[in-house]
Amino acid sequence: MSRSLKKGPFVDPKLLKKVLAQSRGAEQPIKTWARDCTIVPEFVMKTFLVHNGRDFKKVYVTENMVGHKLGEFSMTRIFRGHSGIKKTEEQQQAPK
């Protein structure tokens, strides 16, 4: 279900404050845990370090990303392939 329009997009107030404060200063990545924060036009051209549960992924916000959430760009899972696949390859290569 989509969010009610009455409320407007959810933007983490603290994060927004930080972004606005930074507007003209030296651009430094902003570390944040607010994965649920919607990307608003003010965030464009900024770099965020978005927590994924383990470490912070660098996210450079472009215009296309407006309307998405920060968390969508910081993957929380690493897929390293299925078990077994590597073993069968080794078996095939090894002489019988």
Partner: peptide
């Protein structure tokens, strides 16, 4: 393609 380019979860 937009989703793929911005490298968001859905794009991946």
């Amino acid at each position: 393609n937009r989703l793929k380019e911005i490298a968001c979860y859905r794009g991946m």
